[in-house]
Protein backbone atom coordinates (compact mmCIF):
# COMPACT_ATOMS: atom_id res chain seq x y z
CA UNK A 1 0.00 0.00 0.00
CA UNK A 2 1.43 3.41 -0.89
CA UNK A 3 1.71 5.74 2.06
CA UNK A 4 -0.65 8.70 1.48
CA UNK A 5 1.16 10.91 3.95
CA UNK A 6 4.28 10.54 1.83
CA UNK A 7 4.26 13.68 -0.25
CA UNK A 8 7.66 13.23 -1.85
CA UNK A 9 7.59 13.28 -5.60
CA UNK A 10 9.40 10.66 -7.57
CA UNK A 11 9.96 10.17 -11.26
CA UNK A 12 8.54 7.13 -12.93
CA UNK A 13 9.25 5.73 -16.36
CA UNK A 14 6.17 3.82 -17.37
CA UNK A 15 6.03 1.46 -20.35
CA UNK A 16 2.62 0.79 -21.88
CA UNK A 17 1.85 -1.76 -24.55
CA UNK A 18 -1.25 -0.77 -26.50
CA UNK A 19 -3.26 -1.69 -29.56
CA UNK A 20 -1.93 0.35 -32.46
CA UNK A 21 -5.27 1.98 -33.31
CA UNK A 22 -6.65 5.41 -34.12
CA UNK A 23 -7.15 7.59 -31.09
CA UNK A 24 -5.06 5.59 -28.65
CA UNK A 25 -2.58 8.41 -28.09
CA UNK A 26 -5.43 10.85 -27.52
CA UNK A 27 -6.85 8.47 -24.93
CA UNK A 28 -3.58 8.26 -23.04
CA UNK A 29 -2.82 11.97 -23.23
CA UNK A 30 -6.44 12.82 -22.37
CA UNK A 31 -6.20 10.66 -19.29
CA UNK A 32 -3.15 12.60 -18.12
CA UNK A 33 -4.58 16.04 -18.81
CA UNK A 34 -8.08 15.17 -17.56
CA UNK A 35 -6.79 13.91 -14.24
CA UNK A 36 -4.05 16.48 -13.84
CA UNK A 37 -1.03 14.18 -14.04
CA UNK A 38 2.34 15.36 -15.33
CA UNK A 39 3.90 14.22 -18.56
CA UNK A 40 7.62 14.95 -18.72
CA UNK A 41 8.01 13.05 -21.94
CA UNK A 42 6.09 10.59 -24.05
CA UNK A 43 7.24 8.48 -26.94
CA UNK A 44 5.32 6.04 -29.07
CA UNK A 45 5.91 3.73 -32.02
CA UNK A 46 4.67 0.38 -33.26
CA UNK A 47 6.92 -2.41 -32.05
CA UNK A 48 5.71 -5.68 -33.55
CA UNK A 49 6.00 -7.12 -37.01
CA UNK A 50 2.36 -6.72 -37.93
CA UNK A 51 2.31 -3.16 -36.54
CA UNK A 52 -0.64 -4.11 -34.34
CA UNK A 53 1.01 -3.15 -31.08
CA UNK A 54 2.56 0.14 -30.06
CA UNK A 55 4.78 0.78 -27.13
CA UNK A 56 4.46 4.03 -25.24
CA UNK A 57 7.09 5.20 -22.79
CA UNK A 58 5.90 7.92 -20.43
CA UNK A 59 8.09 9.74 -17.97
CA UNK A 60 5.95 11.21 -15.24
CA UNK A 61 6.28 12.31 -11.65
CA UNK A 62 4.11 12.26 -8.56
CA UNK A 63 3.75 10.79 -5.11
CA UNK A 64 3.71 7.01 -4.85
CA UNK A 65 -0.07 7.12 -4.49
CA UNK A 66 -0.46 9.22 -7.65
CA UNK A 67 1.85 6.97 -9.65
CA UNK A 68 -0.11 3.91 -8.53
CA UNK A 69 -3.25 5.72 -9.74
CA UNK A 70 -1.66 6.55 -13.08
CA UNK A 71 -0.81 2.91 -13.66
CA UNK A 72 -4.26 1.68 -12.62
CA UNK A 73 -5.96 4.29 -14.81
CA UNK A 74 -3.80 3.35 -17.81
CA UNK A 75 -4.43 -0.32 -17.23
CA UNK A 76 -8.16 0.16 -17.38
CA UNK A 77 -8.15 1.69 -20.85
CA UNK A 78 -9.65 -0.91 -23.14
CA UNK A 79 -6.83 -1.02 -25.78
CA UNK A 80 -4.07 -1.28 -23.16
CA UNK A 81 -2.39 -4.69 -22.94
CA UNK A 82 0.19 -4.12 -20.26
CA UNK A 83 1.51 -1.39 -18.00
CA UNK A 84 4.89 -1.58 -16.28
CA UNK A 85 6.59 0.83 -13.93
CA UNK A 86 10.18 0.43 -15.11
CA UNK A 87 11.49 2.63 -12.32
CA UNK A 88 9.92 0.48 -9.63
CA UNK A 89 10.20 -2.94 -11.15
CA UNK A 90 13.96 -3.22 -11.24
CA UNK A 91 16.98 -2.11 -13.21
CA UNK A 92 16.12 -0.67 -16.57
CA UNK A 93 17.62 1.32 -19.38
CA UNK A 94 16.31 4.71 -20.37
CA UNK A 95 17.66 6.44 -23.44
CA UNK A 96 16.88 9.50 -25.46
CA UNK A 97 18.01 10.64 -28.85
CA UNK A 98 18.54 14.21 -29.90
CA UNK A 99 19.50 16.21 -32.96
CA UNK A 100 21.22 19.42 -32.01
CA UNK A 101 22.20 22.26 -34.33
CA UNK A 102 25.13 24.48 -33.52
CA UNK A 103 26.03 27.58 -35.56
CA UNK A 104 29.48 29.14 -35.51
CA UNK A 105 32.82 29.46 -37.22
CA UNK A 106 36.52 29.07 -36.43
CA UNK A 107 37.35 28.62 -32.77
CA UNK A 108 33.71 27.90 -31.84
CA UNK A 109 33.39 25.27 -34.51
CA UNK A 110 36.44 23.31 -33.49
CA UNK A 111 35.45 23.51 -29.82
CA UNK A 112 32.04 22.07 -30.68
CA UNK A 113 33.62 19.23 -32.63
CA UNK A 114 36.05 18.47 -29.83
CA UNK A 115 33.29 18.27 -27.22
CA UNK A 116 31.09 16.23 -29.54
CA UNK A 117 33.87 13.73 -29.83
CA UNK A 118 34.16 13.47 -26.05
CA UNK A 119 30.37 12.93 -25.77
CA UNK A 120 30.28 10.49 -28.69
CA UNK A 121 27.92 12.70 -30.64
CA UNK A 122 28.00 12.09 -34.40
CA UNK A 123 28.08 14.81 -37.00
CA UNK A 124 25.12 14.17 -39.32
CA UNK A 125 25.08 17.46 -41.22
CA UNK A 126 27.59 20.18 -41.75
CA UNK A 127 27.83 23.50 -43.62
CA UNK A 128 30.58 26.07 -43.37
CA UNK A 129 28.72 27.77 -40.54
CA UNK A 130 26.63 25.02 -38.96
CA UNK A 131 26.81 21.52 -37.54
CA UNK A 132 24.07 19.04 -36.63
CA UNK A 133 24.99 16.40 -34.07
CA UNK A 134 23.11 13.22 -33.38
CA UNK A 135 23.41 11.94 -29.87
CA UNK A 136 21.81 9.25 -27.74
CA UNK A 137 22.09 8.58 -24.06
CA UNK A 138 20.50 9.16 -20.73
CA UNK A 139 18.69 12.47 -20.40
CA UNK A 140 21.28 14.03 -18.09
CA UNK A 141 24.05 13.33 -20.57
CA UNK A 142 22.06 15.11 -23.26
CA UNK A 143 21.42 17.98 -20.85
CA UNK A 144 25.13 18.28 -20.14
CA UNK A 145 25.99 18.44 -23.82
CA UNK A 146 23.32 21.07 -24.43
CA UNK A 147 24.73 23.18 -21.60
CA UNK A 148 28.15 23.05 -23.20
CA UNK A 149 26.85 23.99 -26.65
CA UNK A 150 24.82 26.94 -25.42
CA UNK A 151 27.74 29.45 -25.18
CA UNK A 152 29.27 28.08 -28.38
CA UNK A 153 26.28 28.78 -30.64
CA UNK A 154 23.35 26.50 -29.89
CA UNK A 155 20.65 27.08 -32.50
CA UNK A 156 18.03 24.37 -32.22
CA UNK A 157 17.30 21.08 -30.48
CA UNK A 158 14.98 18.22 -31.30
CA UNK A 159 14.70 15.49 -28.66
CA UNK A 160 12.72 12.25 -28.83
CA UNK A 161 11.88 11.88 -25.20
CA UNK A 162 12.75 8.78 -23.25
CA UNK A 163 12.43 5.18 -24.42
CA UNK A 164 12.92 2.53 -21.81
CA UNK A 165 13.31 -1.19 -21.40
CA UNK A 166 13.98 -3.48 -18.44
CA UNK A 167 17.41 -5.08 -18.08
CA UNK A 168 17.70 -8.87 -18.16
CA UNK A 169 15.67 -11.57 -19.86
CA UNK A 170 12.18 -10.46 -18.74
CA UNK A 171 9.83 -8.53 -20.99
CA UNK A 172 6.59 -6.62 -20.90
CA UNK A 173 4.53 -9.57 -22.05
CA UNK A 174 6.31 -11.92 -19.59
Amino acid sequence: MPDPSDTTFRNATIAVLVENEAGILARVVGLFSGRGYNIESLTVAPVDEGRRLSRITIVTSGTDMVIEQIKAQLDRLVPVHKVADLTLEGPHLAREMMLIKVVGKGEHRSEALRLADAFRARVVDATTESLVFEMTGAGDKLDAFIALMRPIGLKEISRTGVVGIARGAGGLLA
Partner: peptide, 15 residues
Protein backbone atom coordinates in the same frame (compact mmCIF):
# COMPACT_ATOMS: atom_id res chain seq x y z
CA UNK B 1 -13.89 -4.68 -9.59
CA UNK B 2 -11.96 -1.60 -10.67
CA UNK B 3 -8.39 -1.62 -9.31
CA UNK B 4 -8.12 2.12 -9.97
CA UNK B 5 -10.81 2.73 -7.32
CA UNK B 6 -8.65 1.10 -4.67
CA UNK B 7 -6.21 3.38 -2.86
CA UNK B 8 -7.45 6.33 -4.92
CA UNK B 9 -8.91 8.53 -2.17
CA UNK B 10 -8.41 6.42 0.92
CA UNK B 11 -5.48 4.07 1.44
CA UNK B 12 -6.62 0.63 2.50
CA UNK B 13 -5.08 -2.25 4.41
CA UNK B 14 -6.54 -5.09 2.37
CA UNK B 15 -7.31 -4.70 -1.33
Amino acid sequence: IDPSSINKNVPVDVA
